[in-house]
């Protein structure tokens, strides 16, 4: 038995340890690095080369696509990454194992948040670098950076929480991947990532408006496109207030779902 004088490790120490574990688990796994981190980069390279046309105001589609692909990158780093990663750890017993240790449970989520943050930053930085170097993307300026930060932050928070919640629905990592990946892909098609949102059928726009991705992409378009192009949006403006509200609502919904559905054990385990 531990000596009565031995004190439990501080939260800060356990948080640091979990952050280290999560970073190593992600960046050492080739599949996750390629799938989550490089996939948006490959999309940018391919689409930038193929869809090389002007969308008006002297702006190339690649500039438009930049906003969408960053939104898709955030979605992958948060929702897809969490849903698949946590479902895997639940079905292989990692979560149950951790629940049997004195690790404070908050430390698991802190570790995941640090992982999402690191992957998101890495994805965005690589996308910006490739965009600027390969396709001469115009970087945001002035207060646009501020908009960039809050849209990315809120979108990432909402999608992380949703990913954690969705992980509880899946039987294991593979079934999570089989469900979430097509869902994310369809969402990307109808949310203004690959195509101009205003050219998508209205009913698809309506469906897309329920989910966070459309609002993330729209918020980021306000960052990457000149304000004259706001007239091309279906609403006729960037609707930044509405972007913030929808993403905040998703943060609240995601948090509620997490609290209601999170399980440390596999369902097959009773």
């Amino acid at each position: 038995m531990s000596a009565p004088t031995a004190t439990l490790p501080t939260l800060a120490r356990v948080y640091r340890v979990r952050a280290g574990v999560e970073l190593k688990e992600f960046f050492r796994q080739r599949e996750s690095v390629v799938f989550t981190l490089m996939f948006p980069v490959i999309l940018l390279v391919v689409f930038g080369a193929v869809l090389d046309y002007e969308i008006g105001g002297g702006v190339s589609f690649t500039q438009y696509f930049m906003a969408g692909v960053i939104a898709a990158g955030i979605l992958g780093a948060s929702l897809q990454n969490m849903a698949i990663g946590i479902a895997t750890e639940r079905s292989d017993g990692t979560l149950k194992h951790l629940a049997g240790t004195p690790m404070p449970k908050s430390a698991y989520f802190i570790g995941k948040i640090v992982q999402v943050f690191a992957v998101t930053v890495a994805t965005v930085v690589i996308l910006l670098l490739v965009g600027v170097l390969l396709y001469g993307i115009a970087l945001p300026s002035g207060t646009d950076w501020l908009t960039f930060l809050w849209v990315a932050f809120l979108g990432s928070a909402a999608c992380t929480l949703l990913g954690i919640a969705v992980s509880s629905l899946a039987k294991n990592g593979r079934s999570a991947s089989a469900t979430v990946t097509p869902f994310a892909l369809v969402l990307q098609f109808i949310s203004g990532v690959f195509f101009r949102f205003d050219q998508i059928p209205t009913w698809m726009q309506t469906i897309a408006s329920v989910f966070p991705l459309k609002w993330m992409a729209q918020g980021l378009r306000s960052v990457f496109l000149p304000d004259v192009l706001a007239a091309q949006e279906p609403a006729g403006s960037w609707e930044l207030g509405r972007v913030a509200i929808v993403l905040l609502v998703w943060v609240a919904v995601g948090l509620g779902l997490c609290v209601l559905t999170f399980r440390w054990r596999d369902r097959a385990d009773g």
Binding site: K24, D92, T94
Partner: peptide, 27 residues
Amino acid sequence: IVLQSGGGDSQLTCLELLTAQAAYYPD
């Protein structure tokens, strides 16, 4: 607790896994 399947399908090395686990305990 030694479970029937305790994860272990990890990218961390044995020493890293044990060092992380040790950090949860007081002694």
